[in-house]
Each structure stands twice: as structure tokens, then as C-alpha cells.
Design a binder for these strands. Structure first.
Lengths: 341, 341
DNA sequence: TTGTATGCGTTATCAG
DNA sequence: CTGATAACGCATACAA
């Protein structure tokens, strides 16, 4: 079924059919009716590839998600979905596998589907200036930003200071009297990620508080394809096995913290009485856990809203913006003060 | 940048460039080099819309997910991603909002991107024969199936018997001596969904065991946009407020069960000593909860694998298949036997 | 081995 | 108000 067939069936020209479909140009009510009925009778659906080929720009916005199964993204996805719909733009949510370069996909999609804007959620800190130029449409990075060497006017960003917040989490545990503090990594990579920055914050906090760094207190994930819970679970067991004197753990993501907490329970430890656990992100699940997990809460809602606002501002010709949000340390019950009174 | 520009830059014809890109037809090593360097120098990326327009069939497979933030889908998504990649096919994961008809999107995508197969994950039981004919490519429904009136040869399905499993969950609680059993709905809709079938199973179990149905023991969600945890949490509080004698709750999804469990703890109740909770789905989170939530576990891994197998079988000309898997009742610690000894 | 020409389904321009 | 017709970027049969 093509527009041509419909034109034939309705006894009109193809441009008339096109006008009916897109509400562009004038069509008499009579012919409109004819065309409409021909369309629905033949179940005609316009071909977007052909349309994209002709159109130079559309109202399509894409949200590239690096690892859509990551629960931290859930709330932001929901908000972005809603806000974009509210503004009358279609949203394309595109998952990007860990093994795939999200910028490649974004550039490809921008071209294929004539995107007018793109949001990159997750991802790394490795985007180069050249890539943004290639992309050549408004782009907002969410949860990451590009290297300082990249011209900031080429993109917007909404993120947090992962190093600082990693420091804050660790300092929190230190303030509660902990000295043997474990750290759980998901998958340490050579490229800078939010996770590696949080780790740097952990290291700095230890150093500034005069606590010697002990590599045996750091566990990281061997298999990259395991789910977050399981990674946290396994790594917690490892840490406990080789550090019986460990009194606290900082997991760089809530999902790991929950896995770690479960491991503690299985090992016969009580959280927080035997071991304190602090997570990162502030996903809902951490709140509903029992006990609720203390965490560094990213203001996901505000971040998503800012992201959308900035994106639409850029689409309307506004300048790029770079926002760094502060997190909130939520103290809820998974950490204990062990200072001697 | 178009293929034409590249041809010009490399001093060759456009068909030569095309041959290089697609490895179709013979090209001398010398010209291939020239073309390649022209491509990388100009950062040329072929336009997929144009390509799709020409090509009549591709190896693209789409996974339509009705509500990608649903954690139950996580594991299946990961498996499908892996299995499809393993077979050398590109996978497009497409989120479908609750307010959008997934079949519409599938048909549109099938046309626009020349899909060779599609998986519908989630969704409802409302697909008609006409829609499958329109789709006209191999299609596997995952977790649902179409009405009996639809010619089964038009599609495949991999699902469970939601009514039976809902019955099983309820019967389990009854066998433990519970008589005042609450039921938590996410969002009861008029169209048949897995959730409504599980509810039917709940009703039948009560009836067959001579327990009078009490509507005050059923709570359902008013706002559709709240997250699962919160819904479970709120509804549990409602149920408890009006049924102090309630000793057990069946939540039709684990995520609700977790929210309900947290509500119980907040209300000062212990799980399972004061109240038993059984969930449905078997998501990881339920396992890592403390206590681990008893649940009707869907064999997500096997279901995803079957789905892929069937899909590729159909793509290679095989017949459609319909599989119904049995769930497993996982008893782990959130339910208590209250039978008097 | 290479280049030219045609058409995929649309939209948009421009005469009627 | 309506209908030819020329692109859009690419793949491919066919000619060279």
C-alpha cells in the first residue's frame, strides 16, 4: 500500500492524498472524505522512511539510554516521556547496549530520522568536539558531561559532581566512626565513568581523614553481564571473607548496596548493627528496602526537568547550559554510629 | 554528506561507493582504499531511511516493550539482546507507552524499517486477526496471547497461564491456614490483562475452598502513573486500615509485593509473622529483599529463549508455535503457616 | 572492474 | 482547489 494506490482508489492525485494526510494545503471537504475512507479501507500507513527522506527537519526527539535496564534511569525516563509528550513532540526511546557507542547511534538516528534534539542518558565522559559537530543538533548529556577540552557551547549537560558525592558518602561513614570501609565497584573501566569518579571521592575522603587505603577493602566485578543485585551480593561476600573487621561498605550504586545488604543478612550479619551500608543514586527500591538504604540521592526529577527545559530552549535557538546538581544524603536506617560515647 | 559527495571526493561513481559500503559486487583494492579514506575523511554515514526505501527486506528485528520500566522485563530483555546478537541480527528495542497501541507501532516499524521479525513483550490480549495480517511478518507474543478466535498460525506466543497461577498463589496462602487474604491490583482495566486473569484465579481459589469473597479485601490503584512500589505501599495501608484481621496478601506483581511489605514494616507489622505476602513474577529484587518474597516465579529465561527460538524458526519459514510455561512457587520467607497444630 | 540510469514512497513546487 | 513532476539518498540492473 502506497500513497499512489490510495490516490488511485480515491480517484484523486497523489498530492491530494498527501495534503489530506498532513493537513497541508487546502482540500475540499468532499475529496477529503473520499481520501479518508480509501485510507481506512486499505489500512494505509504512510512510510516514514520515505517521509524522512524528503523532510529536512522533524519534531522527533530521541532519548538514548545506555543500559535501559538500569533502574536508576526509570524515574527520569518516565518524566522525560511525560514532559516531551506535553510539549507535543514525539519521543523515541532508544536503548544502547554496553558494547555499542551511543554517540554513533545518536548521529545515525539524527540523520535517519531527522531528529531535532537528542538526550544522552548514561554513557561516559569521552565525547569529543568533533562528534558533537557531526551530531549538529541540540544535545543534552544527562548524568555525564564531556571533557573540559570540548567547547561547552556545543552541548548542554545536567549532572552531579560524582567525585564530590563519592567523597560525601565516604565522609558520612567516617563521621559515624567507621574506619574499615569497603568499596564496591560494578565494573571498573579504563574510561572515566560516574562510577570511577565516585571511587576517586572515596579515596580522597580516606586520605583527608588520615585513613590508610587498603586495597583488600575494594571489590570489583569480574563478569560484566551479571545483574546489579548479584554483583553486590557476590562482592559483599568476598569483602567479608577477607575483612572480618570491616564495619561499613560504600556501594557506588543502590542496586549493589541492596545486593550487599542481602549478602550481609545471609551471612548472619545485621544491617546496620553489624555492618553499615550506604548506596548511591536514590532509586525507589532503596527506600522500600527493609531497612531503607542510606544513600546519596540524585535529584532525578529535577535533573530530568532541567534536561528537558534546556533541550527545548536549545531547539528554539537558545544557548547551551551546564548544570551540576547537588545530591542529598538520605539517612534512613542502614548505617549506624559506632563512635564510642 | 551523501554517497554522491563521497563518489565525487574519491573520483569514482556512486555505485562503486555503494559496493564498497555493502561489500556487494567486485571492487579493485585500489579504488576500495580510495573510497574508504574518502568516507572516513568526511565522516560519511549512509542514510538508513534511503536504504530502507530501496531494500525490500532486512535482518532487523524489533522488540516492542509495553512499559520498559517494568522490572519484570529486565531479564528477558537482556537475554533477548544477547541471543539476537548471537545470531548476527540487529535488534531494535522500542518502548511503547501505556497510552499507545503497541500493534500500531509494530506495524509502522515493520514497514518503515523492513523488519524481518517482531517480538511483543507485555501488552494485552486484544490483538485481532486483521492486525496480524497487516503486520505480515513473523511475530511472537511474549507473556500474552491473542484471543482464541484469532487464527493461531498467524503468530506465535510464549506465555503462562495467569489464571491458573493466580489460583496457585492464592491456594498456597489458603494451605498455610489463611482465610482473610487481600489482593492488590495495579490498575484494573476493562481489557483482559495478565493481571485481571490472576485476579480471576484468586477469586476461583477462594470459591473452591469455601472462603467467601470480601470486596473490602481487594485494593486497586487509582492513579495509573504511580510507580509499582508506591502503589503496593499505599494499597497495603488501605487494606490494613479496613481489615485488621487480614493475615495474608497476594500482590499480582512482585514490585507491588515489595511495596506492600514495606508498608507492613512501617505499620509495625512483621513479615511474615504478622502478615504473609506472596508476589508474582519472580523478579530478582524479590529475592534480594529481606525477607525474600515468596512468589510465583515465571521462567523468564526459558520463556525468552523459547521466544527467540520460535521467532527465528518462523523467519526461516517454520510454523508458528504456542507455548504455555508453568510457573514455580518459590517459598522463601515472606509467608507463614498459621494452621493450628 | 566500473559508471549511468531508474525507482523506492514521500513531500513540495508550480502550473492548471 | 487539484494534479503532474522534481527531488530526497541509496541500491541495483544494465551498459560499458
Amino acid at each position: 500500500m502506497t500513497i499512489k494506490d490510495i490516490a488511485q482508489a480515491a480517484g484523486v492525485g497523489i498530492s491530494t492524498v498527501s495534503r489530506v494526510i498532513n493537513n497541508s494545503g487546502p482540500v475540499s471537504e468532499k475529496t477529503r472524505k473520499k481520501v479518508m475512507s480509501a485510507i481506512s479501507e486499505h489500512n494505509f500507513i504512510p512510510n516514514n522512511s520515505a517521509r524522512n527522506l524528503k523532510i529536512s527537519q522533524s519534531k522527533n526527539i530521541a532519548l538514548m539510554v545506555k543500559g535501559i535496564t538500569n533502574p536508576f534511569f526509570n524515574k527520569m525516563i518516565r518524566i522525560i516521556e511525560r514532559e516531551v509528550a506535553l510539549r507535543g513532540y514525539p519521543l523515541l526511546i532508544q536503548n544502547v547496549d554496553y558494547s555499542v557507542n551511543e554517540m554513533d547511534v545518536a548521529i545515525q538516528e539524527a540523520q535517519d530520522r531527522n531528529l531535532c534534539g537528542v538526550i544522552m542518558m548514561g554513557g561516559s565522559f569521552t565525547y569529543t568536539e568533533e562528534r558533537f559537530r557531526q551530531l549538529s543538533i541540540p544535545c543534552v548529556l544527562l548524568t555525564v558531561k564531556a571533557d573540559k577540552s570540548v567547547d561547552p557551547s556545543l552541548y548542554s549537560s545536567v549532572c552531579i559532581d560524582d567525585e564530590k558525592e563519592g567523597y560525601r558518602a565516604t565522609e558520612y561513614l567516617i563521621s559515624l566512626g567507621h574506619k574499615r570501609i569497603g568499596f564496591i565497584h560494578h565494573s571498573p573501566s579504563d574510561i572515566p565513568t560516574p562510577s570511577s569518579l565516585r571511587y576517586k571521592g572515596y579515596l580522597r575522603a580516606l586520605e583527608e581523614h588520615g585513613i590508610a587505603f587498603d586495597p583488600s577493602l575494594v571489590a570489583s566485578n569480574p563478569a560484566a553481564d551479571a545483574s546489579g543485585f548479584d554483583v553486590g551480593f557476590q562482592l559483599m561476600k568476598q569483602l567479608h571473607a577477607r575483612n572480618r573487621d570491616m564495619t561499613a561498605v560504600f556501594a557506588h550504586a543502590d542496586i549493589l548496596a541492596i545486593g550487599a545488604a542481602k549478602a550481609a543478612f545471609v551471612l548472619g550479619l545485621d544491617v546496620p548493627n553489624d555492618i553499615s551500608i550506604v548506596g548511591f543514586d536514590g532509586i525507589e527500591m532503596a527506600e522500600y528496602y527493609h531497612p531503607s538504604i542510606d544513600t546519596i540521592h540524585q535529584p532525578a526529577q529535577q535533573m530530568a526537568l532541567s534536561c528537558i527545559e534546556t533541550l527545548f530552549d536549545m531547539i528554539q535557538g537558545g544557548k547551551s547550559q551546564h548544570m551540576t546538581y547537588n545530591c542529598v544524603l538520605l539517612k534512613r536506617g542502614s548505617c549506624k554510629n559506632i563512635n564510642t560515647v
